[in-house]
């Protein structure tokens, strides 16, 4: 992505007691979908909460479409341009899907009743929930609730969308449907997608950031992350004790990832192989996103 970053962050640090949830995080995001990969406790949710202006960083600064949330006026302008889907989106369960999105639209300053209702219909249609708009949220499935939360995030057509593990708990069909929606959303805006699942990144993202222990360990394209494992994946008849990761495949052979022995039978790496190697003690490598 060669366009100017829509979100730029420098030196973001956030501590909870002695634990550094974010440790000097510097990054830039452009248009399209950027994947944010990392294990539990890596700092993904903390990063999204800081960028969403839900919690201030202890140190560092960032801008959203040129607006600095450190000032009251900048924060308000940034919030007008942000859509945020939290990890555990809360609902008023007695509200219908329409009423809930309508409520969020009011929080987003859409006070004109007619214009607000048109916007609510637009976003519910965008996530394919028009048919259940009158149903109470407590009667919707988990996948539908996630789509209601995504619709709420899309209200006001924000330029930056922050999605915190939106596909967790969804069955494969729902996950695929959600991926389509995220891809559509990323066609004309910046989307930062936090996820555990490397398939999400492989299928959706043009850029990927890997975090561990509050630090950015890798930033680049999915192809560059996959290339980190080039020549470092091999197949054998048993788990290689020198491998950093290894597992028995369905064919009875062992797929090993790490530093291969001489003469090893090398395999084409996947994005997950690259991710495993980046997490496993590789030196931090941060490229411009």
């Amino acid at each position: 992505m060669t366009s100017a970053p829509t979100v730029s962050a420098a030196g973001l640090t956030l501590r909870y007691g002695r634990t550094a949830a974010l440790d000097d995080v510097t990054l830039g995001l452009g248009e399209g979908v950027t994947g944010l990969l990392g294990p539990n406790g890596a700092g993904k949710t903390s990063l999204l909460r800081v960028l969403a202006t839900a919690v201030p960083a202890d140190r560092g600064a960032f801008t959203v479409l040129g607006h600095d949330p450190a000032t009251a006026a900048g924060r308000r302008e940034a919030r007008r341009r942000l859509g945020y889907l939290p990890q555990n989106p809360g609902f008023h369960p007695e509200f219908t899907a329409f009423a809930f999105v309508d409520y969020v639209a009011i929080l987003k300053e859409l006070t004109d009743r007619g214009a607000r209702h048109r916007e609510v219909r637009r976003v519910l249609e965008a996530v394919d929930l028009t048919d259940v708009r009158g149903k109470r949220i407590k009667r919707l499935s988990g996948g539908m609730r996630q789509r209601v939360a995504l619709a709420a995030a899309l209200v006001g057509d924000p330029g930056v969308l922050l999605l915190d593990e939106p596909t967790v708990g969804l069955d494969p069909e729902q996950r695929m449907r959600f991926r389509e929606l995220i891809a559509d959303a990323g066609a004309s805006r910046t989307v930062l997608l936090s996820t555990h699942q490397t398939e999400d990144v492989a299928m959706l993202c043009h850029r990927v950031i890997v975090m561990a222990r509050g630090r950015v360990r890798f930033a680049g394209t999915p192809a560059e992350l996959t290339a980190k494992a080039a020549g470092r994946v091999w197949i054998g008849t048993e788990r290689d004790p020198g491998a950093r990761a290894g597992w028995r495949t369905g064919l009875g052979t062992f797929r090993n990832v790490g530093d291969p022995p001489k003469g090893a039978d090398l395999l084409e790496p996947t994005l997950e192989d690259g991710y495993l190697l980046v997490l496993d003690g590789e030196p931090a490598e941060v490229a411009s996103v």
Binding site: A52, R79, L82, Y84, P89, G90, P93, V104, K108
Partner: peptide, 18 residues
């Protein structure tokens, strides 16, 4: 008690007004 607290915090509507 407010399940939508996180959404309210990040909304442009000033928190004090809410």
């Amino acid at each position: 008690l407010d399940p939508t607290h996180e959404l309210a915090i990040v909304a442009p509507l000033h928190g004090f007004r809410l």
